[in-house]
Structures are given as C-alpha cells and as structure tokens.
Design a protein around this nucleic acid. Sequence first.
DNA 1: CTGAAAGCGCTAACAG
DNA 2: CTGTTAGCGCTTTCAG
Lengths: 335, 335
Amino acid sequence: MARSHEPTLADVAERAGVSVTTVSRVLNARGYLSQDAKDRVARAIEDLGYRPNQVARALHGKKTNTIGLIIPTVALPFFGELAVEVENALADGGYRILICNSLGRADREREYLNLLIGNRVDGIISGAHNEGLCEYESIRMPLVTIDRDLSPTIPNVRCDNRGAGRMATEKLLEAGARRPALLTSRSGAHNLREQGYRDALAGTGAEPLVLAVPFDTPSPLRQRRVEEALDSIAGRFDAVFATDDLAAAEVLEWARGRGVDVPSRLKVVGFDGTTAIRRALPALATIRQPLDLIARKAVELLVAQIDGSGPSPGDAGGVPSAVEFPVAFLPGRTL
Amino acid sequence: MARSHEPTLADVAERAGVSVTTVSRVLNARGYLSQDAKDRVARAIEDLGYRPNQVARALHGKKTNTIGLIIPTVALPFFGELAVEVENALADGGYRILICNSLGRADREREYLNLLIGNRVDGIISGAHNEGLCEYESIRMPLVTIDRDLSPTIPNVRCDNRGAGRMATEKLLEAGARRPALLTSRSGAHNLREQGYRDALAGTGAEPLVLAVPFDTPSPLRQRRVEEALDSIAGRFDAVFATDDLAAAEVLEWARGRGVDVPSRLKVVGFDGTTAIRRALPALATIRQPLDLIARKAVELLVAQIDGSGPSPGDAGGVPSAVEFPVAFLPGRTL
DNA sequence: CTGAAAGCGCTAACAG
DNA sequence: CTGTTAGCGCTTTCAG
C-alpha cells in the first residue's frame, strides 16, 4: 500500500531546524518561545500537513479526552437523539464520544465495558438496560448513568419518571377515560412510570391493568405480542398509556385493525416525544423527556468527576445520587 | 481520586515472576510458552484485573482497529440504523467504530475528519452529505463512501437510487395516480432518485413536479415548508413520492390538515423503510433500502483497502467505483 | 528562550 | 522456551 508515514513531531522539528521540544511547545503554547521559532514551526507544520498523533499524546498524558456512551442502540430514535445531545454537551468540554450499542445483550455490554477501559476512556455514561452486570461494581472510573439505578453511589440522571407516569395517566382521565391500561417494557417495583400510573389510578376506583412487552422484542414479533396483550384485556380498558412512543404506535395500529376509533373509543398517550417520532406521528399525544437537559447534566456530573472537582463513584455525600428533570405534555389527537 | 494506576504489563510480569515479553507473548498467544509460564501469567492477570492498554498497543502497532463513520446524525432513524449495521459488520473483523455526527455542517465534518486522522483510525466510511469538502481529496487513508459520490476514485456503496425512484413512481401510477409529484431534499442532476422519477414519468404525458425541502431543515420549520411547497402546486398533483419516510409523514399530515383523503384522493410513497419508522407508521407504503447489505459491502471494501488486498483511494482499476443494491417495495395503505 | 533525555505501556527483534 | 533491549510519537523535567 506504499503509504508514506504521516509526518511526526520529529519531521516537523527537522524541517523547522529546531528540536522536538520546541515544536511540542508551540503546539501546546507552553513556556516562552521566540517569535522566530514559532513562525518557523508553524510553517513546517503547514508544509508537511502535520497532525499530532493523538494516540501517542494519550499514552503519555494519561488522558484520552474520550468518554464512552453505552446505550441499547442508536437505531431507536430515543437513544439516537440522546447520543447526539450527549455529544453536543461533551463537545463544549473538548471531549469526544465513543458510542457503544449494547443491543440489550449483557455479553455485548460487558465486552464494550472492557473495550472502553482498555482504551482508557476518561469516563463512562451508561444508559443501557441490562440488569446485574457486576462489572460496574468494580469499575474505578468516572461513571454516570442515565435513567438507570446501578447503585446508590453512582450518580443517576433521568426525568421524573413517577411524576411523568402520573401526568400521562391523569391526561387520559381528564380526557374522559375511565379505565386506562398501561403498556410497558417490564413491570415491577423499579418501574417508576408504572408507579406513577398506579398513583394516578388510586382513588379513581379503576383497576390497574399492566401489560408488559419487552422493548427489544424483534420488530415483526412485537406488533403481534402487543396485539395479544391488548386482546387479552379486551373490553376492560378504554385508554392506554404506553411507556414509549413506538409502543403507542403499535397500540394505534391494533386499534385500526380492530376497527376501534381513536380517540372516541380509545385514548392513547405515549412517552419520550423524540423529534423523529413526532415528525412521523404528530397526532400522537405524548410525554416529552428533556433530553437536552438530561444529557447536559450527565456530562456536567461526569466532567466534575474527571476533573476531580466532584465525587468519584464510591464516594458518599456530595452530589445527590439521582437528579430528576420534569417532563412536558405534548398534546395530540389521540386523546 | 487517589486512583492508583491501572496495572501494567510490568506489574503482571513482576507478580508472575517472569519478563514482560513472556506476558506479552501469552497475551498474544505468540511463540512457544511453557504451560507453567502460561498458568502463572494467567493467574497474575486475573489477580490484578489487568486489561491491556489499547492506546499503547495502537501506538506501537500502527493499527488502532478503529474506523470512523461520518454521518449527518444518528438522531435520524435512517442513519441510526445504518450505524448499527456498520458496527455489526465491523465487529466480525475485530474493528470498532467511532461515530461522528456532522449535523450537516461542513465545519463540523472537517473537524471530525481531523479528529479521525489525529486518532489514527484505520479507515473511514463517510455517509455525510456536505458538498465540496476538499479535505477528502488529500486524504491518504482507506476510505469508502455510502450513497455519496466524492470522486470517481473513491468506492461508493448505495442502493440503486435511480431504479428505486422509478419503482416508487411506477407504484403510484399502477395504483391509479396520474400526476405524481416528487418531494426531495435537493433537486438536481446528481439526484438519482429524481432521475428515476423522471424516467417513470417520461411517456406518460405527466409533467414532472419537483419540490425541494432540505432534509436538515429544523423540525418545526420543516412541516411548514413542506405544506407551502404542496400548496404551491395544489390541484396539479394526485400523488407524492417523498425521498425519505419522514418527509412522507409530513405529506400525510398536510393531507389530514387539508381534508384530503389518502389514498383515494392522494397516494403517497416514501423511501428508506427503516424499522423505526415502519413501526411508527406501518400504513406508509415505502421503498426499503437494504441497509444490512450496504453496510456489509462498505465494510468489506474498506477492510480490503486496510489489509492492502484491495485498491487504495487514488488507485484506478480493481473494484468498480460504485456498487449498487436493489431495493424492495413495502406495500402500505397510502396507495 | 531552547535542547537532551527519560519515559508512558506495549511489541518485536535478537540473543541466550 | 525466555529475557534484554530498542523503539512507537509525544510530553516533560532538567540543564544549559
């Protein structure tokens, strides 16, 4: 392939007739330099089209200016938009991002964790969903999670899931629904949106109807699963709060297939409110997560850890373990 | 932060009572090792929780096993899914991916290009859309583009855009449309989907109606632009071929607002057929790009360049400069 | 103001 | 079979 080497510091030094030290100095604007030296080095860099080797720089400096982001998959608009927001927030601090799609598989997440550590990233933001990855316990590295409780000592940033679940359910009730069902990914005590749904139902006399279809069910299967779930409670609900917008879309498709009119006979509210799904389905009423704020805060907490100006994981005290942001209701024609 | 260093090769060597060479050897399974040595090293690695420093490894080996992917933004499902497909294809070869969102801005793309080169990635796959970035000319590095003609010497992988444009338009005609309009991002000779549209119209007596709204128009504005465009040709069209699904969704929203029934009075066909949008809008008829094949082929061509078993950019001959894959029509209720 | 030299952690000759 | 010894490209004392 006869590719000539990229030029190195030494090449620049030689061409400029100075030492590598001097070149390094002008590159990093450190110490006093004669104008003459600066000029000659600048010219040599220009002539050679020199670009510092960040790999070498990182090896020495013990800082890669890279952080890892672990999420299920950027193929889902929610995580795609989250990734872009994180990237933007990071850019201000001079960091870049290594995006890792765990695809909801624990082995893949573990693999990526090792990759990130091996590559000596300066910190990790984890928004993946695999339970019980003990690896995180032993990670001695700046770490922040998004919408995921790993451990009380690891800062977590998220929207006010419980309040949001309550809000979504209340919107359905206000619109006239009497028996709203919940369609979520996994039911349980850890599911705060479900808690909010139950909160809102308490005192209305309505019985909670919780349907669970894993969010990473392969696509052709998912629609069927959702339809089975809805059919199984047929006649016992007149509204659905789906904990993500794509699931809400599946509910709409079910209704169309069954000839159930929305919103007169069925009201639907989704969750996330991503720009992409909003464009695809502007009719869908939903709860919007403030992704920009969440990303910005997660980055802020992470950078504080990296700079040592914030608590590291394992540290008690200091930053509260969870930061929550309020959500916004986006009206639509589905309720 | 009082974090003691991550353990190094030397630490492992000391603990195992062997030399660093030996440790390096067992790590890379190179040369002959006594079983005893292997065992002791393995134990030491285990005890210390040692993870090889990939940065150092890359510095020496002149290979980072990382490739850069430049795209507009993973916030759009099409590029999000493309990124995941590329990542999967790459994983088989032991490569990882650095995803760069250019956000459609030339400055950002240039910046990322420098970043990738500075980080000494082994190659670049570019699927961004900025015109006239002269930087690419001077890049002496394995490079493949996706759906983008940079130069005849740089391999390009894409779907059969022209055939696909023709197919989409023909589907509209077959469904009974007489005057299909085209809604695209940028009109011009380079727009092969537009060519296909014109091909299909030739001989039908229908006059081409081409509407252009840039795909990266900020979201709230876009819907308005699309509506203005459609209003401007009101009464002169009875179908729309939109060159991406999100644009098609905007057409549907326009129709709903104007009280135009789909598909009886207006037929619509989109483009891309991503899983996410398919889930959100299963009713939309569209043309599906074989993202998996495209990604796999792009990676194959890139890896061939990296391994030196394929032509480098600038090389004439060898691999044809463009590889095209056929698309598939996905039926829906919008036509 | 500038340069020589010692590493950062790892790999690869080149001897034993 | 194993250890010694150079570097990879860059930053950073420490002396001029």
